[in-house]
Design a binder for these strands. Structure first.
Lengths: 218, 218, 218, 218
DNA sequence: AATGAATGAGCATTCATTCAT
DNA sequence: TATGAATGAATGCTCATTCAT
């Protein structure tokens, strides 16, 4: 009804980005539901109404960031690195993801948390992020199985295990606690683990081990 | 005359439990923020105000359920199963967790989602659930390393990878899509994977493989 | 989030009525769109949220009043008055409507204004108020035509003209200005006008006619 | 290249008209409150801010249109038609109004709806439209009474009844439902009704009467 | 002990209006 | 002259929490 004192005309392309930045920071700190548009506006240094000049809804802010900061960069990242020993490939990719997820830590968190209860978002992540991974991992693993480098194993299982591990290392960090190693060490070690498992190179039939303690932890 | 038994004055200890049950089911289905106290009261067949006779706040409901339904039963579950081949141990434990998480699927979801943004809850989970796991896994892995069954590997990494995998299989299911195998198959296969990795039993030096496709996916 | 100091527990049946009264008064004074739920709450001496314990939405307030104050009384009004000269029937019914509309003046105004742009409400009014009127007027007029008391005329036209006149006398008052006569005089005069038109009289004494069907409709 | 002619710098007087046209169409379709300045700007092919170069406020748009599109043309319409049988006069005038209101249907709707709650607008309509009608109808009816063609009847009542009927036939159409007859039939039949009422005829042939003054008022 | 009516701050979103460009 | 980005008060509605009954 009133519309007083419009502040300042900003660089028009920057605005959108600023709002996105502010929103993703707050989402990351507090979760999507707990973050209000008022807070976002305040953090971006604009009026509440201005948000809606750039985004149709609060939810679109979530989707927009996922699109522009997770999905798009992903396509850009796919490049170079053609052939290399499995170990190297694994390590590189894992490191890459670890870095990305570390950097976007807070934001990935929200997306996951939201996706739990927002089928639309879950579907988006599934479509745009996971499906491609399935295909690539399938190729990679089936190739290895075909030429005898890998055991006959379900590629889906490998993908899930790898994604899960990355998940535990980057996103669940708050819960599992920090890992003392550098991300590069983590990547290299994880790659080795996924390739060789726990077993010593020359298998020895193991003596009995207690398992129950295991149960208590996660 | 019909289904609406006027539920007056139940066993006072049962009430608490009923509310907890109702709350955790709803939290699981819709997320914590999206579940209202009205819904909880309705589901528990009581008045809204009654909730506050048993719990100081909505948040306490979350904590209470974690305590009584996840942590306590966990301690009960830890039992028997002394010695057995690593593969068996692993498979059993994984299956056990997979089953538990499957059953509690919805609830674990909320706890994780909430823990992302609630340091108090994150600390609780870390303390009561994860720390114990760390100790046990440490024992298990260090034992294996000591007697030559396992490579020299960081037990923390193994734990994180295993937890992550379980996570991906049970909690991220909505995002990664369902796995076509039975939980038993999953458990056995995961155990084998964690023990042996991808590599074929008789190592073959791999030809070069393209890795980039891998990058595109998760 | 906070819910402080609940004021007072009122007579439970009264509340709904109080809110309805407050709403219809404000709607009448300012129009539907211009009346805010805050104002309604204030006028009813309650908190804003309380409105929504009794009505699902602001729009429902509009519909509820139409239902309870216009439609229901209409059915109650249909009574007694069986046979009487046309002139008496007409005058009575017109007076009755004139009184009702006068009393509800403000509220009818909103409903009409709203119905202009709200097809749902328009349909409701058409269904519940106008259709019945059509039927009754049809009977009345066709009866008169059949026994030679009335000219061969379209009953729909008569109904529209009568409703329109009532409309002009009660609702358009603000625009047409007030009429100096008492409502009874208006009613009698209108009845005569509708029966005889402008033309100077060539009176015919009418046989008795039942009037009640007429009452039910507009 | 396509339909988006960049409409830069039109004839400055045309602009005002274009905005008015756009506004009145939208007001008519959706009501005044529900029409946004953004929609008006879009419909007029201009920027939102430009509206305020021509009109001080949204409300002024309403007044401006009433002035320029209803009142002014009305004065132009008043013309010719000197003497003719009452029936002819009535029918002509009613048809004229019916046509005008039909054409302006949507706009009249808003004005009425608005006038209900806007005394300023109500007064304007009363002054400029209704008062003139009162005078003319007074002349017409008093003339008829004087020379014995009409019964002794209050001219105000006749005007109100006629306006109301027109109202019901053109504006309330959405509520009363459509009339199956042509507008010409309606006009003729209404004229007959107002002259003769419902009563079976004892016709008296009326002398000629002037009709034009009638046109100026409602 | 249990109720559920009542609260009111808080939410996402809208929109007439302003003014730097 | 015309623009449209920016404003921010205001809106309808929600919901955790309180407390008289």
């Amino acid at each position: 009804m009133d519309g007083t004192t419009p502040k300042r005309r900003r660089a028009p392309e920057t605005r959108r980005e600023e709002i996105l930045q502010a929103a993703s920071r707050l989402f990351g700190e507090q979760g999507y539901e707990r973050t209000t548009t008022k807070q976002i506006a305040q953090a971006a240094g604009i009026a509440e109404g201005t948000i809606y000049k750039y985004f149709a809804s609060k939810q679109e802010l979530l989707f927009a960031f996922l699109e522009s900061s997770v999905i798009e960069p992903l396509n850009a990242i796919i490049s170079g690195m053609t052939g290399a020993p499995d170990e190297e490939v694994f390590a590189t990719v894992i490191l890459n993801r670890l870095d990305l997820w570390h950097e976007r830590h807070e934001f990935v968190k929200v997306n996951i948390a939201e996706a739990f209860f927002n089928p639309q978002l879950a579907a988006l992540i599934h479509e745009k992020l996971f499906r491609g991974g399935t295909r690539a991992m399938e190729q990679f693993v089936r190739g290895g199985i075909a030429d005898g480098r890998f055991r006959d194993i379900d590629p889906g299982l490998v993908l899930r295990a790898v994604v899960g591990a990355l998940f535990a290392f980057s996103i669940l960090r708050d819960i599992t606690g920090p890992d003392p190693h550098t991300r590069e060490e983590q990547a290299r070690e994880l790659a080795r683990f996924f390739l060789h498992g726990l077993r010593a190179p020359q298998p020895v039939e193991p003596p009995v081990t207690p398992l129950l303690p295991l149960a208590l932890l996660w």
